[in-house]
Each structure stands twice: as structure tokens, then as C-alpha cells.
């Protein structure tokens, strides 16, 4: 374990030096050039802000709340997006039905849905989740569709001569697994977009907690050290979600592609 940790630092020495360099420059610029917390809080001020919100425990409530919004959004995007992508990709009629709808709705920026989210769902967690949903659902639909469309004919025919002839079986046993790389890529993109929509979704006070909400809350108090702290936390959690998802995908869903050069 220790050896692995040492090795990690050895292999990543340049990356780590780069980050430390950034922090040092940031601290120096904040202390000696800008000299105003309002414009640029220093690294140490951010750290003490971080300690404050950890001590009071408020950070954890914020993270929980944001993950709740994110979870509602991504969960419903998966439940809605994947089946629509499957129908569009597998059935020509399905494509003709859904394609115009998707193509008209897709270019609308997710944030433009906020007024309706609030009218329909009120100041609730679901309203914030809805905005995340709108951001996440289209990449999932499009990638599922593309994955299904590019299912190799040879696999479908091989399955058919092995007695797998019903659409239901062909979808679940052939098209779905063969589209998995594309679908998971779509989910990753969707989660990225959804995470970005989160800040805006929480802006309108659907809850008194949440990482995005806190950015605006502290901004209104001109506590820019807290604003920057929450910004960094948003970045780090977004990164962790993506890494975690990639790990799950590579270990379980796409194990069969290990070693394949794409």
C-alpha cells in the first residue's frame, strides 16, 4: 500500500509539481498583487473557508442536497433517454416518430427550461432535478441511438441463425451489449452536462442547501472566499463522479474491451 502510494507520487511528479506551482503563484498573486479578497481570495483563505464549512457540517448537507438533485436528474434521464434511444435506433418507425421531437427540443439550452421547471414543479428538489434531466437526457438519447444504429449486421445475423429472432431478444442480447461503449460514453457526457446545469438549477432557491445554491448565497454576502471554495468543490466532485463512473464501466460493463485498441 505504502509502496503503491510512493509509486503514484513518483509517476505523477510533474502533475503534482504543476498543481503546487499553481497554488504558489495563486497565493503570491492574491497576497501581493491583487490584495483584495473580494477580487481574488488567496489559497489560505479558501482553506480556512473550507475548514469552516467542514466544522459546521454544512458542506455535507450541501453535497447531499446537490447529489440528490443530480441523482434525480440523471436517474430520470437514464430511464427516459435509453428507451427512447433504443426505439429510435432499432425501429425505423420509432425513429421517424421521435426524431423530429428530439431535434426540435435538443437545441433549447437546458437553463431555458428553468421557468417551466419552477411553474410545474415549484421550489422543489424535483424542479432542480428536472433541469439536470434536460441537460443529461439528450446526449444519452443520441448516443444510445447511434450505438444501436451502428450495431454490426453480422452480430444480428449470427444471433438470428442461433435462434435469437424476436426483436426483444435481439435488442437485449445483441444490440444493447454491442452498443454499450456508445451508451456509456453518452451517459458520461450527459452527467457532465447535468453537473454543469446543477449550479443554475439551484440558483432559484429550491432548497437552502446545495453546492450551486451556496455559490449564489455567499456571493450575495460578498464572501468570495466561500464562493471560490464551493466552486472548487463542484469541480472536484464532478471529477470524482466521472472517475467513479469510468471505473465502474471499465471494470464491469466493458470488461470485454480491455486490451482492445480502439
Amino acid at each position: 500500500m505504502i509502496k503503491r502510494t510512493i509509486n503514484f507520487f513518483k509517476n505523477r511528479n510533474i502533475e503534482i509539481a504543476s498543481l503546487i506551482g499553481l497554488i504558489v503563484i495563486w497565493q503570491l498573486v492574491a497576497d501581493y498583487v491583487v490584495q483584495r479578497t473580494l477580487f481574488l481570495p488567496s489559497f489560505t483563505e479558501v482553506i480556512s473557508a473550507l475548514v469552516r464549512i467542514i466544522e459546521t457540517g454544512v458542506l455535507f448537507t450541501d453535497i447531499q442536497t446537490s447529489l440528490l438533485h443530480f441523482g434525480i436528474g440523471i436517474g430520470s434521464a437514464l430511464i427516459v433517454g435509453i428507451p427512447i434511444g433504443v426505439i429510435m435506433g432499432w425501429f425505423t418507425l420509432g425513429n421517424r416518430i421521435f426524431d423530429p421531437i428530439v431535434e426540435i427540443l435538443r437545441p433549447i439550452p437546458p437553463l431555458a427550461w428553468i421557468p417551466f421547471a419552477l411553474i410545474w414543479l415549484g421550489l422543489t428538489h424535483t424542479a432542480a432535478g428536472f433541469v439536470v434531466f434536460v441537460g443529461a437526457v439528450f446526449p444519452i438519447v443520441i448516443n444510445t441511438y447511434t450505438g444501436f444504429k451502428s450495431t454490426s449486421r453480422i452480430y444480428v445475423e449470427a444471433a438470428k441463425v442461433l435462434g435469437c429472432v424476436r426483436d426483444r431478444d435481439l435488442i437485449s442480447k445483441v444490440a444493447f451489449p454491442s452498443s454499450m461503449p456508445s451508451i456509456t460514453a453518452g451517459i458520461r457526457i450527459g452527467m457532465g452536462v447535468g453537473w454543469m446545469c446543477l449550479v443554475a438549477a439551484e440558483l432559484f432557491g429550491v432548497s437552502r442547501f446545495g453546492l450551486g445554491y451556496k455559490i449564489w448565497f455567499h456571493y450575495s454576502l460578498h464572501q468570495m472566499d466561500f464562493v471560490l471554495t464551493y466552486m472548487l468543490i463542484l469541480g472536484i466532485i464532478g471529477l470524482l463522479i466521472d472517475k467513479g463512473f469510468r471505473f465502474v464501466v471499465d471494470t464491469y460493463l466493458l470488461k470485454w474491451r480491455k486490451g482492445v485498441v480502439v
Binding site: 453480422i154 449470427a158 444471433a159 454491442s178 470485454w256 474491451r257
Partner: peptide
């Protein structure tokens, strides 16, 4: 063509 299912 190679028709084995690569995911299995």
C-alpha cells in the same frame, strides 16, 4: 467475417 459476440 468474425461473428463471435465480442462482449461474451
Amino acid at each position: 467475417e468474425y461473428s463471435l459476440f465480442p462482449w461474451r
